[in-house]
Amino acid sequence: MRQRQASQGARRAREFEAFVAGAAGRLLHAATLLTAEAPDDNPRARRLLTLALAHTYARWHRLRGEDPYDHTRQYLATRFARAAWHQYGGLGRARPHPDSALAVLAPQERLILVLRLYEGVAEAQTAALLGLPTERVRTICDRATATLLHPPRGPAPAVVPTKVVSS
């Protein structure tokens, strides 16, 4: 009995290691986009990914036919949304890395944009995952895309009066 359990445990570990080897890079990139950190300095994204992978590993034997990547991505997204809600009193503005292209977006906008455009999750699935109406997801995604394509202008430069030299 113990030998069979040990064998099943080893097989489970090998399957999970193979999954992580194939999926961790893409999931880390998605987490880095969500947190709007620099790719080479992303401790929040790494923590988010670690928590999502630990959750998936804990449920590995119960997934039975479920896509482990989809399961991990869903947990990553909901964990990010929950953290943003608790940390910033709603999905308000966080302090992302200033060099990030997604730094101009609010966390909810980043979440929807990453799920829809980077991960290719359908509008209806995104809406169901986040508990929002489909129209709201569409509107937020459109607004976030427009913001990225046409970033808000900074303040106008200050006008410095020049001295006029009379001759």
Score class of each variant (00 low, 15 high):
A24G: 12
D40S: 00
T162W: 08
A83S: 14
E37G: 14
D142G: 09
A45K: 04
D142N: 09
L105W: 03
Q87K: 15
D99W: 11
G65C: 05
V159S: 03
E66Y: 11
H86K: 13
S100H: 03
P96D: 03
I112S: 01
G9S: 14
S166G: 05
F80T: 05
R138E: 09
Q5F: 14
Y88C: 02
V160I: 07
P96V: 06
L51R: 03
R26A: 11
A144C: 01
M1Y: 03
A23I: 05
T139I: 12
P157E: 10
R153E: 06
G92N: 12
G90Y: 01
A81W: 00
E109F: 13
A127H: 04
A21V: 08
L115C: 05
G9L: 13
P161G: 12
L53M: 02
L76T: 02
H71C: 06
L91G: 10
L48E: 02
A36P: 00
A106I: 01
D142F: 00
H29E: 15
G154M: 02
R95Y: 02
L33F: 06
H29L: 10
Q8Y: 06
A23R: 05
G92R: 06
L63D: 02
Y118F: 08
P157D: 13
L49C: 08
R64G: 04
L53G: 02
T162L: 15
S166F: 10
R82D: 10
L51S: 06
H61K: 13
T50E: 07
R95T: 12
T32L: 10
A106H: 02
A24L: 04
Y57S: 14
A13T: 07
D99L: 10
A30Y: 12
R2F: 08
A13M: 11
R47L: 08
L76I: 09
H29Y: 08
H97E: 13
A84Q: 08
L48S: 06
R95V: 03
R82A: 11
V164F: 06
V159H: 13
T134L: 04
A81F: 00
V137S: 04
H71N: 04
N42W: 01
L27S: 05
V165E: 12
E37V: 09
P107G: 12
R4V: 08
L113K: 01
A122S: 10
H29Q: 15
D99K: 12
R44A: 07
T145I: 06
L113Q: 07
A58Y: 05
D41C: 04
A77V: 05
R153A: 11
D99G: 14
R26E: 09
V164C: 02
L115V: 07
A18L: 11
Q108K: 14
L105E: 00
W85Q: 14
V137W: 00
A81G: 07
G65S: 10
S100W: 00
L53N: 01
L76G: 07
L33Q: 09
P151R: 13
V121A: 02
P107A: 13
H61A: 15
W60C: 06
